[in-house]
Amino acid sequence: MKEYFPLFVSSKGKKALVIGGGKIAARRISTLIDFEFDITVVAPSITKEIRQFAGAGIITYIEREFTDEDLDGKFLVVAATDKREVNKYIGERAKELGAYVSVADVKEECNFYFPAVIVKDEVVIGVTSGGKSHKRVKDISNIIRKVLNHEN
């Protein structure tokens, strides 16, 4: 039996919060952008890629440390800081508030797994191993992309 059910829900206009501004945060943001989330990023510093998203008005960037109020009204939260204790706290608080939360550094603290996402025309595919094998997910996702790109 599996604990996690793959559920596709409308994300258009839903409030997403990404705490952290590094490479993992940038990857998560890149995926969320494709699904019309209203994205806010809170971090004292961000990557060049995240800065470009903010400069283009695609996301809202708040340059500071996380505060509890940042979680208010959020549908989805990604805790991707470089501080273990901060990620853990964010995960606990976000769940208490009823948000879907992905804690980047500890899979057991997530209440959803951020999948590898494959989009081809109207088809959206999410692949996850429940946090058990990132390499296997990457390999399977690449196979699926190859198959979809060779379709006629």
Rank of each mutant, 00 (worst) to 15 (best):
V77G: 00
K14P: 15
I140D: 00
F114Q: 09
V103R: 09
F35Q: 08
V119W: 09
I90S: 08
S102Y: 13
V123Q: 02
G20V: 01
E96T: 11
K120Y: 08
K146T: 13
A104T: 04
A43N: 05
A104E: 00
R51C: 06
K23P: 11
K15Q: 09
E85K: 11
C110E: 00
C110D: 00
M1T: 09
G22D: 03
Q52S: 15
T31I: 08
L148W: 11
Y100W: 06
E36R: 09
A56C: 12
I59G: 01
E96F: 14
F35C: 07
G126E: 10
K146L: 13
V127T: 05
D121G: 03
E69V: 10
D38H: 07
V9E: 04
G131M: 01
T40E: 14
A16C: 14
D82C: 04
P44V: 08
F112C: 02
R27P: 02
V78L: 07
K12F: 06
D121H: 05
I62Y: 01
I90A: 12
I90P: 04
V101P: 03
D34N: 14
I46M: 07
E109F: 08
S30Q: 10
A25N: 02
A79E: 08
A25W: 01
K14D: 15
D139P: 05
I24Q: 01
E36S: 13
E65I: 15
R27Q: 09
G91Y: 14
G22L: 01
S141E: 06
F66M: 14
F5V: 12
Y89V: 05
K12P: 00
A99W: 06
V18G: 00
E122K: 03
P115H: 03
E36P: 00
I33S: 11
T60N: 10
P44F: 11
L97F: 07
K48F: 15
V18L: 05
E122M: 03
R136D: 11
V77S: 02
V103Y: 09
E36M: 10
K83I: 14
L32P: 13
G130I: 00
I19L: 07
Y100P: 00
D105V: 07
N142G: 15
E151M: 14
V147L: 06
P115V: 03
T67G: 10
A54K: 08
G20E: 02
K95Y: 01
V137T: 05
Y89P: 02
I58G: 11
T81H: 02
P44D: 10
V86N: 13
R145C: 03
T47Q: 12
G131W: 00
K95V: 04
E108P: 07
I46L: 09
F37V: 11
A116R: 03
K138W: 03
V137S: 05
N152M: 06
K88M: 05
I24T: 05
N149F: 04
G91T: 10
K48Q: 11
R27A: 03
E63T: 04
V137L: 01
E36I: 06
Y4W: 14
A54P: 09
G22H: 06
A99Y: 04
